Amino acid sequence: MSVSLIDTHCHINFFSNAGEIALECEKKKIHTIYVTTLPSQFEETYLYVKPLKYIYPSLGFHCLENDYNLEKEKSIFLRNISKTKFIGEVGLDFSKRAIQSKEKQIEIFKFILNNIKSKNKIINLHSSNAEDIVLEFLIKYDIKKAIFHWYSGKIGTLNEILNYGYYFSINESMCKSKKGQNIISKIPKERILIETDAPFIKNILPYKNHYVYSYLSNQWQLDIDTVIYIVYNNFNRLQNTDNKKNLFDF
């Protein structure tokens, strides 16, 4: 079998050597979803990553980025929707650090969902302390494809998310905490994706992200090549595309 590693959530632009990171992912054939946190970030970097085969630019509008010129960012979001099938990082955060901006977050999230609901997009979600309402909005706006990034919510909500066909991306920090390990154990093999969330999880690079694969290998009692195959096949199934660059070479 000939498959590659994936990273479904990486903030490449936050690295000081972002260009080198992107080119190394390309060289090593690491399929990497490059998430942004503002539409203007996406627009500023899109032309640089567009020629790369293994970097997937993702149009983001992070829930904590709500003190910018929102009308300007909304306009940028709208004119860039057609450039990518990936939307993220977006979502809601009702933790103590962010609850004061709850209404503004909801406004932005509704704006995003309303403008992608009839399009074949894959949405990359932040849902800290807001998992239930994020799911509620996905259902309301009939969003078909979603990845819950670094999920930390209730198992009951996790099961509901699975019932709607959505995916979860797990990372090294989750594998090293008891709560994260418990969550990972509840996710079926066919719904797991792997992320780094680099550089926010420190000392991890998208092309040196072997820890999670090894962890799953031990948990699933499967050899590492089989784990790589399963996770990559999940990524392929999520995309459900005829674009050959995204298909396996078996």
Rank of each mutant, 00 (worst) to 15 (best):
V212K: 03
G91W: 03
N243D: 15
I155L: 15
T36S: 14
S118C: 06
L205H: 02
N171H: 05
K179A: 03
L47V: 08
K176N: 10
V134D: 03
R191H: 15
G156S: 13
S16R: 08
L38H: 06
C10F: 00
G91I: 01
Y68F: 12
T241M: 08
W220N: 08
F235M: 14
I123L: 09
T226I: 12
N243G: 00
F14T: 00
L5K: 12
I55S: 06
Y46S: 02
Y141R: 01
E20T: 01
E26D: 10
S118G: 12
D197Q: 06
I33R: 00
I204W: 02
T45H: 13
I139L: 11
T157F: 07
Q219L: 14
N17V: 00
G156K: 13
L78P: 04
D142K: 15
Q41M: 12
E190C: 04
N171C: 07
E43G: 03
E190D: 14
I55N: 07
W220Q: 08
N69C: 12
M174R: 01
N69H: 13
G19I: 08
Y141D: 03
L23P: 04
G165R: 05
K72W: 03
R191N: 15
F148I: 07
M1L: 04
R191L: 00
N129R: 13
Y207A: 03
A198S: 15
A198W: 01
S214C: 06
L38S: 10
S128W: 11
L78K: 10
P51S: 10
N120R: 12
A18I: 01
E44K: 15
T32H: 02
Y151T: 08
F200P: 02
D197G: 07
T8V: 11
W150M: 10
I187N: 10
I108K: 07
L92Y: 06
S217R: 10
A130Y: 05
A146Y: 11
R79G: 02
E172S: 08
Y164L: 00
I143P: 10
K85P: 03
G165M: 06
S128R: 15
S95R: 07
P39R: 07
A146V: 12
I55E: 07
L5W: 02
